[in-house]
Every structure is written in C-alpha cells, then in structure tokens.
Design a protein around this nucleic acid. Structure first.
Lengths: 226, 226
DNA sequence: ACAATACCGTCAATCAACTGACATATCCCG
DNA sequence: CGGGATATGTCAGTTGATTGACGGTATTGT
C-alpha cells in the first residue's frame, strides 16, 4: 500500500513540483493550498505524513500544526514544515509546536525526500520495509512473516494487518472505531464487535507458542499491544 | 524516569557544553569521545537517544550509525547527527544511513534540545510530557496507564476518568456537582453521594502501593488532588 | 454535644468483553 | 472449472468486572 502524503502549499509552482516529485517516488499525494481545507482532508483520510508550508493563506502553518496535534487521531502523524527564512527562533518555535522536522527554502526535492524518508522510517517502519520488534515478537512486512521467540506464526491477512497496525503504535490504546478505520478502511461498515473476534484470533495465534498475552484489553476503551 | 542520552563528541569543549545543557534539561547523560566505545556503551545500557558527531576519532560517525542500526537492540534508538557546514550531499547521506535528524554546526544548545524533544515526542511519547505527573503519580492517557512510584495501578473506566479529571486540574477543589458533570456527563442523573464512593475506590487504588493519600477531602466543598 | 457531612461494606443490576458456532466469501490447487 | 481448505464477518449466550445505590457508622466543626 502506497503511503499517502498531504502537501499544504499555496505557491502553485512549488506545489506542482512537490506533487510531481513525490508521486515519482511512489507516494500517493493529496494537495491543497488552504489550511482549513488541509485540516478537513486530514480528518477525512489521515495521511501518513504532512508537508506543511509555514506561510500559507487563511491559517498560518503553525496554527494548522497546532490544531492537527490537538486532534487525537492525527496527533501522531509526522509533519515537516517548509520555512522561508532560517531564523533560529522560528525553527525552534516550529519544533516546539509539534513539527517533526523543517526544511528551509530554497531546498532541493531530493533533500526533502530524504528527510521525509528518515521521518517515515521512524514512524511507519512497515512502509520502509523494516521489520518491527516488540519483545520477542517480530513482524517482517516485506516477507509477510511473523515470529514469536523465533518460531514462525501463521496469520490470516486480516490478522496480519491488525498486528501490523498494533506494532506501528506500540503501547497505544486503540479504540474499536480506530481499528476498524485503520485496518479495514474508512469506508468499511464492519461491526465493532468483529474487532473483538479478530483480536481473539490474533491472540490465539501469537500466544500459541506460549508466553504472556501481549494484547491488553482496556475496558470501554479498546486494545493495546506491548 | 529520566531519559538517558548518549553523546559522542570528541571536541572536549563542545562535549562539556552539551553534557551540561542536557543535564540541566533533566536528561541522564553518558558521554564518550570514541566511536568504538560508544558502541560498547550503547550495547551495555541502551540509551533513549544518541547525539553523534559526524567527524570523530577512530570510527566515522556514519560508520557508528550504520553499526548501531545493524544491532537489533539498538536499531530503533533515535540518532541525531552533528555535522559541520551543511553540504547537502553529506546531509542526505546521513539521513539515508539511518540518522533521524541532523544539526549543522554552529548551533545553539537550545535548538538541539528542541530537536531532540521533537524526536523523543515521536519515539517515547511517555517521556516527552504527554503523560501527566503529580509527585510520584503518573497518568499516560495514550497508553491508558496509571503508575504510582513506578508500580502499575489498575483502574476501572470511571476511576480512570475521575483521576484524569483531577490530574488535569491539579490542586483545584472540585465540587461533587462539577465532578458529576465533568466525569459522568452533563445529562447524567447520578446521585452526588456516588462521587464519594468513586473517590473512595480511587483512593484505595492509588494508595494501595503505600504512600500518603493524595486526594484531599474539603468538607462541604469537594475534593482535590495534589 | 450535636448536627452536618463524609466514609465504609455490601449488593443487585448493568455493561462490556469473550466465546463458540455458523454461514459466506475467498483463495488455491489440480 | 470445480472442490476443498481457509479466512472472515455476524450473532447470541455466557461470564466476569464495574458501578450506582443504601443504610449504618465514623468524623468533623462549631
């Protein structure tokens, strides 16, 4: 699945260059010049990362950043800021607001791509093809394999996606609604109880080799791994 | 628990400045000028993040970085590179090697601290201020966990919401009416006496590990935490 | 001492999660 | 193309924890 990117940039020429560059890298790109609309789009289809110009119409980049961070669904989406001047004060303010990185104009698309890749490697290891590990549980997204304590575990497709979703967010409690949209897709009309069943199946699979139950049930909230 | 930092820097003056700055920020700091030794220290006590100078004696920073990444235990520890004047090629190469960020000299400690905080916010939300803390009581809303003096505390959903409500308003006296609307919702027709009961349960839970009672009863007014 | 207020132990109703069974849907192999 | 195996979603019954309410007792301030 191609990672989705949201680019918020109001200079049409730069926006086009960025869209073109990232699509060539294999990203699925959403784009808008408008801060308000960016928030709407992000809420609708949470992207895997956001490229955000500091100076845009309507809302300032910093304000968009702050509002994204306040939104629990979007709080963990990485944000890269594009800033004009490299004033240290601005950069620090950007980082403190919740941006994960910034790039000062002018920059080459190649550098921006490299920075994004570095951020993604951290936040979505699966998209970078890295195997993820939690205690003795490892998941290799490329080989589509899961091991517990070295022993191979067989999972169905949905169970695999569910586990991957958990491993990308270790320790976090995910509500059934979040899991439905994250694992089945936002346009899915799955019963929330079905999540219980898949969790049960996943549990049975990863605990079959022995060892403690790694999935924690949080009553009236959801589940978490780790 | 204070996050641990490993600083690998062979310029004694800069090293001292960094150690001093980060200790002032509340980090526990390990330091070495030597790449080989850095790998040993990291393997021994995995730090929460590494600050790594690009140009150091013995092993180059880039090689240290690569070897850290190969080590499964350390593969996910965030690394910030310190580079001299920012040649774009070098910066990209650093990022591709697995560094999570870089800072070009000269830089102010403040900027480096802000960048580290941004990286940590991502990798260790629990260490970056997302969790609320009052004395030895901590509540992590993302992981839905409560600890007292490091010991995990199990709470029911209502108790959790109640505690969260208190921790968001430390020291403030909250009336039973305020608590009912705040914790149970505006349209709840709960008896006010029930608040007493939940407070009692919450008390029993958070004091079970010993330590003083952190909830203060204010007669004819309500309760407060802290 | 007294009146008001808070605390406590108990209990029944409720709620949320777990479970096993079943009916489709999908995949895979020849 | 067909048939078996596998995977998936739904449902309904069960289980166990949580919660709100009482009534009696203890504490507190005046």
């Amino acid at each position: 699945m191609a990672p989705t990117l949201l680019i918020v940039e109001d200079d049409p020429a730069l926006a086009e260059l960025l869209v073109w560059s990232f699509e060539a890298e294999g990203y699925k790109v959403l784009q808008t010049p408008d801060g308000e609309e960016a928030l709407l789009i992000a809420a609708e289809t949470p992207p895997d990362a956001i490229i955000l110009d500091w100076m845009i119409e309507q809302l300032s980049g910093i304000e968009v950043c702050r509002r994204l961070r306040r939104h629990p669904e979007l709080a963990s989406v990485p944000i890269i800021m594009l800033t004009a001047r490299g004033e240290e004060e601005d950069r620090i303010r950007g980082l403190e607001t919740g941006a994960d990185d910034y790039v000062t104009k002018p920059f080459s698309p190649r550098e921006l791509i490299a920075r994004l890749a570095a951020v993604m490697r951290r936040t979505r290891p699966a998209l970078a093809g890295q195997t993820m590990r939690i205690e003795d549980l490892e998941l290799d997204p490329v080989a589509h394999r899961v091991r517990r304590d070295g022993k191979e575990i067989g999972l169905g497709p949905t169970e695999f996606r569910l586990l991957q979703h958990f491993m990308e967010r270790p320790g976090r409690v995910l509500s059934r609604a979040q899991l439905v949209t994250g694992v089945w897709g936002h346009d899915s009309d799955i019963e929330e109880r079905t999540v219980d069943v898949q969790v049960k199946r996943l549990r049975a699979a990863i605990n079959s080799t022995g060892g403690r139950d790694m999935i924690r049930t949080v009553r009236s909230a959801g589940y978490s791994l780790g």
